[in-house]
């Protein structure tokens, strides 16, 4: 991670990804965390350089999975995401496809929907400002327009703007971002963004079932006060924790998401809830519960991304894909029968 050490104020008010830090940003605790994390980053960078030595490629293996769980250094992040998600292969097999999408005929309604969100995607990021050079807004627009015409069943769904924006910040490349978006929406995530949003609704219910199994007191609290899961977690799923958790933590989660798939989202959600169980259980009414779910995504526990990522693999206990698939099946059926 680059740090601008020139002592000018603005360098600290804007994070390395271009996001302005809030006025109440706790610089002291962040510096304390970051100086510790820097040691980890340096160690990981050396390991990754050795792994990628010469050929700039990775094969899926237990070692690579372990490496990814410990974080991909930012300089290799785009490359590794491209490879492990299959986006690289798709891009190579379809040369010129992305640009043809942009040149083709456009659906006016889709364009209108995307335009509505252009000024509403990361206004707090200096790279998305109209005055920025290059301004990422134009690239973002292209990716979303291309994607909407590529995957007509999905078109454009709010939330995709934030995801594509993050992809751009990491890859700094329109076409790569497009193929990574396709990997996420087309393969990794189960139908979150299509008009019926059935995959999203299903996964919210699946999380509810998992909480019932693993953190029953919280499930009982939600039930007692009639808080539907969708109310507190829909943004977690749709935005893949963007704007919910700190940027660095989101990227660490995405490292695993690209390699291990959508299961990671449940691990993160369960860890957040389990870790703050006592705190959540203090809530005595509906609005309190909602407020608690906002609070648990803030603070040192989530900022310290390295220890957080260790926690997500131990804290929720075992979570097999077989269990998730079974729950997905029963939850989907239940939703469909409710109409």
């Amino acid at each position: 991670m680059e740090r601008q050490e020139d002592g000018r104020d603005w360098a600290y008010r804007v994070d390395p990804y271009g996001f302005e830090r809030p006025d109440d940003f706790d610089y002291a605790s962040y510096e304390a965390f970051f100086s510790r994390y820097l040691v980890v980053l340096t160690r990981r960078a050396i390991k990754w350089s050795k792994l990628l030595k010469g050929n700039n490629s990775v094969q899926k293996s237990l070692k690579v999975k372990r490496y990814i769980r410990k974080g991909i250094p930012n300089e290799h992040r785009a490359l590794v995401w491209m490879i492990v998600s299959g986006a690289q292969t798709n891009m190579e097999q379809n040369p010129g496809y992305y640009h043809r999408l942009l040149e083709g005929e456009k659906n006016d309604k889709l364009i209108e929907a995307i335009k509505t969100d252009m000024n509403r995607t990361f206004p707090d990021n200096v790279k998305f400002r109209k005055t920025a050079d290059p301004c990422l807004q134009h690239a973002l627009y292209n990716i979303l327009v291309a994607y909407g015409h590529h995957n007509k069943a999905v078109g454009y769904c709010q939330g995709m703007n934030f995801i594509a924006g993050y992809l751009l910040l990491i890859t700094k490349n329109e076409e790569e971002s497009f193929w990574l978006l396709d990997a996420l929406i087309g393969r990794i995530l189960p139908d979150y963004y299509s008009p019926a949003m059935l995959g999203l609704k299903t996964d919210q219910e699946v999380l509810g079932e998992l909480v019932k199994m693993k953190i029953p007191a919280v499930a009982e609290l939600m039930e007692r006060h009639g808080v539907m899961w969708t109310l507190v977690v829909s943004r977690w799923f749709i935005c893949l924790f963007i704007d919910i958790l700190p940027v660095e933590t989101v990227l660490r989660i995405w490292d695993c998401l690209f390699y291990e798939g959508s299961k990671i989202i449940f691990r993160v959600a369960l860890t957040l809830i389990h870790q703050h169980q006592a705190f959540i259980l203090e809530a005595t009414n509906f609005p309190d519960i909602c407020e608690k779910f906002k609070q648990i995504t803030k603070g040192a526990f989530v900022t310290e991304c390295h220890s957080f990522m260790q926690k997500i693999f131990t804290d929720p206990g075992s979570l097999s894909m077989a269990t998730i698939n079974k729950l997905r099946e029963t939850c989907r059926e239940k939703l469909l029968s409710q109409g």
Binding site: T116, D117, N119, R120, T121, F122, P123, D124, Q158, G159, N161, F162, T230, L231, S234, R235, I238, C239, D243, P287, C290
Partner: peptide
């Protein structure tokens, strides 16, 4: 002006 992001899902304030 220019500080709002698209609302995803549902939220409330009192």
């Amino acid at each position: 002006a220019g500080s709002f992001i698209s609302t995803v899902g549902i939220d409330f304030r009192n």
